[in-house]
Nucleic acid binder design. Structure first.
Lengths: 239, 239
DNA sequence: TACTGTCAAGAGCAGTGCTCTCGTTTTGTT
DNA sequence: AACAAAACGAGAGCACTGCTCTTGACAGTA
């Protein structure tokens, strides 16, 4: 009873260390092997036998899930810290910080970005534990929008020559449902414009990392991305 | 000499048939297995031995390349036929037709779309033979823009409150380089707006197919996509 | 008819995810 | 201090993969 309470078991400590070491090696191999990483190779690099790794992750998919959660958390943290350095009232600055934070992390960890934002692994079904970390970046944008609404610097009016939502009642209802679910203060039209910017933000990063810009934009991708961010900021109404 | 000229050799005929049958089976397996399809499974379904398939495709990557080219061509053809049905002067209609043509094909062939627009396969390097088919969709958009410029219905002026390109001379030079390379009549600012719409178009499809809209937009994705297309059309200046 | 190139088949190699068993070690409880 | 329970690493083994090499059979050409 007493020895069991002393901080932590030796077993538990070693287990935690090995668990994170397995994840570290797996992420390193992710860079060269992609989503189809080899458990045996990880075990080999660890000096263990492949079956021993199954004591820590019951299957390869579980290891992948752990990596996915870690990557989502890292990406979310990167975006959050980049955004936290900007004045709260500077909505455009916060938007740019989020965007560049995401892109910088993605460029530094291309394989990890492909793992979480690339093609879904055929047999793999992402468990519910991943949705929380995955929502960190979008939550960040939504709270920024909500801040703008609260401060009055972000009008709900889309402007005179804006493209209005199509008169599909179901779509409006669905958007209102997610609107009230995640951010009740953000009006529908603003939410839609935010979604457009959100898609564009990740779309540019995805295209850049997946080689879509080859032979087109080579040397000035950051400036090009920055311009895309500002275009979408203008569309949303951030200034 | 005479029998050799009769249409085609029996060998060559059988070879062509088997080649396309292998590709058909491989594409069917692509649906369930993703990018890591099994040559042995394809051979099994064909009633052949795995080594026999290597007579037709020297490696698994070569089979993948053939599939990729076919998919690019199919997607390009789908976009072209959808766009060809619209009046040439109706730029907005052409833009919408291209967009929905791409999305419809992607929804009908999600695994194939993931193959060409998803995460790059780690060890795989796309050969030069794929860039031609891959450029069909973008060429379609560019000729549409060039048509608008030629007809005078597409002004180069981005508008009074548009976000201007950042004063990065290299970026401007790079954009002008690709502009003169692929479509000399399209001015730089219009080209940039077209790029924005191009990225958004594929970004929405990618997000939809890769499960990014789950628990958000479920029942009205086509309407949502249509709205995104119209937003970007407004940004480009198509009307 | 004789030759040449193509073909499918089979064996084999190294690698994979995963399961099961076997001794060993640590843990929590009498 | 003694003991049962749990956790652990190692090893063998199964079915699978991409790929190579060899062998024997067949078609096309001369």
């Amino acid at each position: 009873m007493l020895s069991g309470m002393t901080a932590k078991n030796l077993r538990a400590r070693v287990r935690d260390e090995l668990t994170s070491e397995i994840k570290a090696i797996a992420r390193r191999q992710l860079t060269t092997e992609g989503a189809n990483l080899s458990l045996r190779a990880v075990a080999r690099e660890l000096g263990m036998v492949s079956s021993a790794v199954y004591r820590y992750f019951p299957s390869r998919d579980d290891l992948l899930t752990a990596l996915i959660i870690d990557c989502y958390d890292e990406l979310g943290a990167a975006a959050e810290t980049a955004e936290a350095a900007v004045d709260r009232a500077d909505l455009l600055g916060r938007w740019l910080a989020i965007g560049h934070g995401i892109r910088d992390w993605a460029l530094a960890h291309p394989a990890e970005y492909a793992l979480i934002y690339g093609s879904p692994v055929p047999g793999y079904r992402a468990p519910q534990t991943t949705v929380g970390p995955a929502a960190r970046t979008t939550d960040l944008m939504l709270t920024m929008l909500a801040d703008g609404v609260a401060a009055g610097t972000l009008p709900a009016d889309p402007g005179p020559d804006a493209v209005v939502l199509p008169p599909v009642p179901d779509l409006a209802a669905e958007l209102d449902r997610i609107g009230t679910l995640i951010s009740p203060t953000v009006p529908r039209d603003l939410l839609v414009r935010g979604l457009t910017g959100w898609i564009q933000m990740f779309g540019v990063v995805t295209f850049e990392l997946f080689g879509r810009f080859q032979n087109m934009i080579e040397d000035n991708r950051r400036a090009f991305y920055d311009h895309q961010l500002r275009v979408m900021a203008g569309h949303i109404g951030l200034r």
